[in-house]
Design a protein around this nucleic acid. Structure first.
Lengths: 331, 331
DNA sequence: TCGTAAAATGGTTACGTATTCATTTAAAGG
DNA sequence: CCTTTAAATGAATACGTAACCATTTTACGA
């Protein structure tokens, strides 16, 4: 391994000068710079980032703790986050974390001395939030948020759930189902609350049988869907807590020989990129902003890192309905 | 920042002992281990990975140079790669690289002293390949390969292109188009060669107008598609070099009020996960293996890293047709 | 009880860089 | 030509860990 000392010897200067050539060349005479650069080229020298990090306590690395990519929401956000961070000169350590492994991922991030952490996976009540606050480590959550109500970028989840139910009610559906995820997660919790509020405001009856909180796995959603089909009066409209769930439901419907939207209507939330594909055309609720939550969050995080502002980010984007082809008036 | 020295002082032992407690606890007496662990907990000590990497010359980090996630192929592979690597205890530095920025990404990976590099983006003729070989750094390419014909995991691209054309010919199509990517890339090159060979073997005439090599961007594909539509005799069948291109073509067709497969047939290559969704049902050519190329590649890479085998990985997976709903007999 | 081997622990150093401080060299001003 | 100041360079050190070698403590058999 060729080090800056080797370069120094080769160029007949001190290691200090080599370091200066790379970091503050204006403090070095032109001929010296040339000499050193020539040696660097000749020896194929590449500085050791770990040694630098050790002394500078700065790594130019960000940890991304994302959900899995089979959820298209995380496809959009991961792409946006990695691209933006790379453009700004940061490396990104990506991990696809489930809630159980968050602690491990956290330790790994700290051990690696990352400059900041951007993550989706946090529970409303997560005790790890305090750990983050105690560390003097910039971090932000996107999509989900913690009960402390700080350091987050989200959409207006309550309003999204509300609009979702309202949409189905206004289409004349009577049997409206909710397929959500664990209520320990802010997104699911608030979206469901919005859904309930709309049902209440519109005096729409809601049977317990029509509400299922899944663990968001494909199998669990399929199970939930098939259970609903066995009801005496199966739902004609499905409000899915996320586009990912909605797309799974549509797949399940197809396998049960049911046509969407003719036999049943499905609406999602998130407006992920793929839903606008001509083959999908999922009706959904999403942010009015062009930028996805990952982009907004990484922008804020890097701002925090570089300007040391301990600004308390709290961003909630407004939402609207994207009316496409998976919902239809009843009858 | 609390260091192992602080822990040592707090526990009344030497720094060496602290290090031993964490790495080789069987060499330390039980009471001492307990004492040190207590101090570690109390002080919230987390070891500094950079300092460790510096002395051990091992980072437990892998660099992934992937294509962008709006290509669903990279969604599948990125998910598989990151998951497998994490399970094996490696962090993954993800970068979405275009061919121009490969050199930068390479430097960043070396600077960061990663244990290995897994990448998709390499040109047949890429001079960077030699750099990699000169470095004593395990690396592997998936999907694409270099002309040196080493360190790769791919599908049988020639056969895939061949089957693609054969499929359309056997369905009775006369005007068969090829929409591919730059021939400087092994995948596109070999798939196109296979396509040509099938046309030749079946004595099927092929007009130059029916062949376009795009830069695989959405706009460029749309442009190519619309140009084909203006031909005196537009194609009735489109062989797309990738599923990503195929899905874009279908979107374009829809926007041109053309129905797939009624007005035109489209076949892809790769068999990415999403193509089997009931809403998509893309006919495509893909590996006979359950595991995707990313998985196969990361498995090999980690094997190389851990067993120091400089084994020359050369894996070419056989392919088959996945006959779904986007192709149909002519007339 | 002693001697010897094994177990347990500690002192010191290397890893490769940036930084601080000291020194030399060049430039400028009278 | 000498003095003062700025520019350019070098020597020494810190960062936090693992590894190497040395030393102390313990266990065990005679």
């Amino acid at each position: 391994m060729v080090s800056s000392k080797d370069v120094a010897k080769h160029a007949g200067v001190s290691q200090t000068t080599v370091s200066r050539v790379l970091n503050t060349p204006h403090l070095v005479k032109k001929p010296t710079v040339d000499k050193v650069m020539a040696s660097i080229d000749e020896l194929n020298y590449i500085p050791n980032g770990h040694a630098r990090s050790l002394v500078q306590n700065k790594t130019n690395t960000i940890a991304l703790l994302s959900g899995p990519l089979h959820n298209p929401f995380f496809v959009d956000t991961t792409q946006a986050i990695v691209k933006y961070a790379n453009d700004k000169g940061y490396r990104v350590n990506v991990q696809f974390v489930n809630d159980q492994k968050l602690n491990e991922a956290y330790a790994s991030a700290v051990e690696n001395k990352v400059d900041g952490i951007i993550m989706s996976c946090i529970l409303i009540d997560d005790p790890i939030f305090e750990k983050f606050e105690r560390m003097d480590l910039p971090f932000i959550t996107y999509n989900r948020k913690h009960k402390m109500n700080k350091h987050f970028v989200e959409i207006d989840n309550f309003e999204a759930g509300y609009m979702s139910a309202k949409h189905m009610i206004e289409l004349g559906h009577k049997e409206i189902a909710w397929i959500g995820g664990p209520l320990t997660v802010s997104t699911f919790n608030n979206r469901y609350d919005g859904f309930l509020q709309a049902m209440k405001d519109y005096k729409h009856p809601l049977s317990e049988d029509y509400v299922i909180q899944t663990d968001t796995s494909k199998q669990d959603i399929t199970k939930a869907f098939n259970e609903m089909l066995t009801l005496r009066q199966p739902p004609t409209a499905f409000c899915a807590a996320t586009d990912s769930i909605a797309m799974n439901l549509i797949d399940d419907a197809s396998k049960a020989n049911l046509s969407v939207p003719n036999d049943l209507s499905v609406i999602g939330i998130d407006n992920v990129d793929i839903t606008s594909h001509s083959l999908i055309q999922l009706t959904t609720i999403g942010s009015i902003s062009e930028q996805n939550l990952g982009y907004l969050a990484i922008r804020e995080l890097i701002e925090m890192i570089e300007n040391k502002k301990n600004s308390c980010v709290k961003i909630t984007e407004s939402v609207k309905v994207f009316n496409r082809n998976t919902t239809k008036a009843f009858q």
